[in-house]
Design a protein around this nucleic acid. Structure first.
Lengths: 181, 181
DNA sequence: CTATCTGCAAATTGTTTGCAGTCCG
DNA sequence: CGGACTGCAAACAATTTGCAGATAG
C-alpha cells in the first residue's frame, strides 16, 4: 500500500480560522438536517483541520482520533466520514492504493477544482490547483448534454526525485547487462 | 453497486482485426518476458475483444470466461487481468462502484487519452475521446517537474435522462411540500 | 525436465450492518 | 422521553496468497 504523504503548511492562526469556519459550517448543516452534534463528530472534524496531512484514510483518522477519544469505534469513523461527505464538509478521494481517502472540502466555490499528481514511484501525492479545465464543463454540456457536477483528474507519473532514481537504476541495469554478456 | 453499461458497436470485420492485433501484441509481449502462453490467457484476452461491453470487472470476466473454460478459477482471472495490465494490454479503471474494471488498451498512441463521464444518477458511463488535455502535460512538467505517464479524468454529473428524472422529482417534492403546509 | 501457471480453499483487507445500550435535543 | 447515534462483533465483498498438482517451452 503506497503511502500518501501530502504536507500542508499553515500558520496556527490560519488553522484557528479554518477551524471555526468548518465548525460553524458543521453546526449549520447539522441543525439544517435532523442530525445530532456528538463529541465524536466534533473530534473527527477537528482532526482534519488540525492535521498537516491533507488526505486521510478511515484507518488513519481512526488512529488519530483514538488519542483524544480512545473509546471510539472504527465503524463510527466510517459512518461519520460518510456523513461528512454527503454534507460536503469532506471530499472522498481515491488514489488507487486500496482504500478511500478524505480531505477537507474547504474551498467550496464552484468551478475551482484541484487535481492530484500521483507519483507512480513513491506514491506521494501533489496538489495542483488550477483552472485548466474551466471550459471543460461547457464543452461536455454541448457535446453530450451531460450536466457536470464534479470531476476528478488524476495524473500519474514520476516526481523529480523518482525520475532521478529511475535514471540511475536504468544506468545500473545497463551496466549489469554489459557485464553479463 | 452501480451497473456500468457501456455498449461498443463494431463490425465483425473490425473485431477480427482487433482480435488478431491484440493476439499478436500478447504473443510478442509474452515472448519478450519469460511468460507462458496458456489457454486461459488467450480466452481472457479474447473475451475482451469479443465483448460489446467495454469495461468489465473481474467477476464479469470470470462469468463470461466460464462459458468457454468452465474449470477456470477466479484467482486466475485476477492474476491474468493484473498481468495484462502490467503488459499494457488492458487498462485498469475505477468508477467508484466498489470494484476495479478493465478495458482493452487498444489505442496505445501517446497523448491520446479518453475520459469517462460517470452519471451520478444511474451509474452509466460514457466515453469521451478528446484532446482537450493535450497541453496539460507540458504545464505540469514546467510547474511541478512532474513527468506525466498517464492521467485519468472522471467527470461526475447527470446524463440527459437523469436530468429530466430529477427535474420531475423536484416538481413532485415541491407539490408534496405545498400540500403539507 | 523445470519454472511458470493453475485451481482450490483459506486468508486478508477495507467497509458495512445488526443490535443493544447511550446520549443529544 | 424518543429517535438518532454509538461501540462491538459479526458479516460482507473484493482481492490476494499458499500450496500441490498441471503444463508450456
Amino acid at each position: 500500500m503506497a503511502t500518501v504523504v501530502t504536507e500542508h503548511t499553515e500558520t496556527e492562526a490560519a488553522k484557528e480560522e479554518t477551524m471555526s469556519y468548518m465548525m460553524k459550517r458543521m453546526k449549520e448543516k447539522i441543525k439544517d438536517k435532523k442530525y445530532k452534534m456528538t463529541s465524536q463528530r466534533q473530534v473527527i472534524l477537528r482532526t482534519f483541520v488540525n492535521s498537516n496531512i491533507r488526505h486521510m484514510s478511515a484507518e488513519e483518522v481512526f488512529e488519530r482520533v483514538k488519542k483524544t477519544a480512545p473509546d471510539i469505534g472504527l465503524a463510527t469513523v466510517y459512518r461519520t466520514l460518510d456523513l461528512f461527505t454527503t454534507m460536503d464538509l469532506l471530499k472522498k478521494l481515491d488514489f488507487d492504493d486500496g482504500c478511500s481517502r478524505y480531505e477537507l472540502n474547504d474551498h467550496e466555490e464552484e468551478g475551482h477544482f484541484h487535481h492530484h499528481l500521483i507519483c507512480l514511484g513513491c506514491g506521494k501525492v501533489w496538489e495542483c490547483n488550477d483552472d485548466l479545465l474551466e471550459t471543460l464543463e461547457s464543452i461536455l454540456q454541448k457535446r453530450f448534454h451531460f450536466q457536470t457536477v464534479d470531476h476528478q483528474l488524476k495524473v500519474y507519473g514520476y516526481c523529480e526525485e523518482c525520475q532521478k532514481k529511475r535514471a540511475e537504476e536504468e544506468k545500473d541495469e545497463k551496466a549489469r547487462h554489459a557485464n553479463e554478456e
